[in-house]
Design a protein around this nucleic acid. Structure first.
Lengths: 244, 244
DNA sequence: TTGTCAACTGTCAGTGGCTGACATTAATCT
DNA sequence: AGATTAATGTCAGCCACTGACAGTTGACAA
């Protein structure tokens, strides 16, 4: 009689599963309502009612009205950071970022779909772009993530993020490219995960030449303090494939 | 006896002056209270009470709680844009931006002080950095301004901002530097206008080598300032994106 | 000066985001 | 089954923000 032998589920107990269901249902209902009738025009009472819970319960799952909008993004970001931490130290910084983001999209695609239809997620992206309050929240989130990633990259390369501007410059450029990519994706027709992978890949190729040097050995660049290796940022379309 | 000859004031009628006084008083009171007891901990009722107006009146001057925080920034930004529009077309883009921002600080210094003590404005900057809601608003405002400036720069150079990435990249870099500069200024001791001018000047020097080329002719070094001679720049040694 | 008009302001009532406190229900453990 | 603990509902209340209406006060003309 030791344990009741919980052959119950792969994902914890019943309580756990119920929570997950409510959580996901809230996201779905919220995105549906937001994209349907607009963010401001939708009240939290409506969302709660659609899932048949109380307003108070909504606020036990999400700290505020915005948070539910970014729940899916958060999954992707978490996956990306995990992926990045797993990249071998031998990779150049931009390569690691690139592989991490592509890898994240690989095994997250299904995970997204299990929560919301990908098409709904895409409509949500468009809505964010056209809602000032959400744009602000999105920029702040991006800024926070970039800070985290900058420190991660600096750590990999053994640099001090407060002294050497290159990690932040690289990550800022990378973040900018990613934001444009997801914006273009949101505006386009093809909402497949493959589409964003390809978009990401081709956009990142544009900045590769500017960051292709090795910060540790000083190949094709300088290694300390002096600003900055972003010298080639302004190049629109150069070939110069010194691909590593 | 046509008009009673109102030698009254330089700045319009009495009504106008009264409005201005209330406006400025609200800013002062708000910043004072915010920096004192924190942004979230301060209610609009308190601000209104401090100026002896109704809450409703506050909302007739400012659309929301955030707006009053950025009122001074808005003055500076407006001045900057005006200054930028006035720069001669012969200047290289980065030079124009640089001169515009330095010029803006010149004749705005007094204007700021007439509304709030510069020291109070500096404390406000620090508060913004440490209040998530205000960071978000600040980033969104910056993003909007950068979009406007990008189009302005593209117009000067006869480029299409949606085709050629260089205006946006330049402005993004410029904006990033400016944000860091004002952050460092806010953290430092010297709250003088001279201090931020010097900070701005030295920080901008860091990115000058990357953007010192002439987008129209493809020649290096077009600026008016004493640019360290024709530094090899990033312009593609290949074809240009632009047309005309 | 006086009266009219328009602008500015205050009051009031109401909506919606968000939180703390407490009771209730439902899953887990023994 | 009963005790424990987590999730939820209910309720009261604060605060940001808005529309409507009425009162006040400068501007301007007669």
């Amino acid at each position: 009689m030791a344990t009741p032998t919980p052959q119950t589920t792969p994902s914890g107990g019943l309580r756990e599963r119920k929570k997950q269901r409510t959580h996901d249902a809230l996201i779905r209902a919220a995105l549906e309502l937001f994209t349907d009738q607009g963010y401001e025009a939708t009240t939290i009472d409506e969302i709660a009612e659609a899932v048949d819970v109380s307003q108070r319960t909504y606020f036990r799952y999400f700290a505020n009205k915005e948070e539910v909008v970014f729940a899916v993004q958060e999954m992707v970001e978490a996956r990306f950071v995990a992926e990045l931490r797993g990249r071998p130290a031998s990779e150049a910084p931009l390569t690691a970022l690139r592989q991490a983001v592509l890898g994240a999209w690989d095994d997250i695609g299904g995970a997204i779909a299990s929560v919301v239809p990908v098409e709904l997620h895409m409509r949500a992206c468009q809505m964010i772009e056209s809602t000032p309050a959400l744009v602000a929240a999105h920029l702040r989130r991006s800024s926070d993530l970039e800070e985290e990633v900058s420190r991660l990259i600096a750590g990999r390369e053994g640099l001090d993020v407060d002294t050497d501007p290159r990690p932040r410059v690289l990550v800022a450029a990378f973040g900018g490219v990613m934001r444009v990519a997801s914006k273009v994706w949101g505006e386009g027709q093809d909402c497949s995960v493959t589409a964003i992978r390809e978009l990401t890949r081709s956009y990142l190729d544009h900045i590769r030449p500017a960051f292709d040097d090795d910060w540790r050995t000083g190949q094709a660049g300088r290694s300390t303090g002096d600003v900055n290796s972003g010298r080639e940022l302004s190049t629109p379309d150069k070939e110069r494939v010194r691909n590593g």
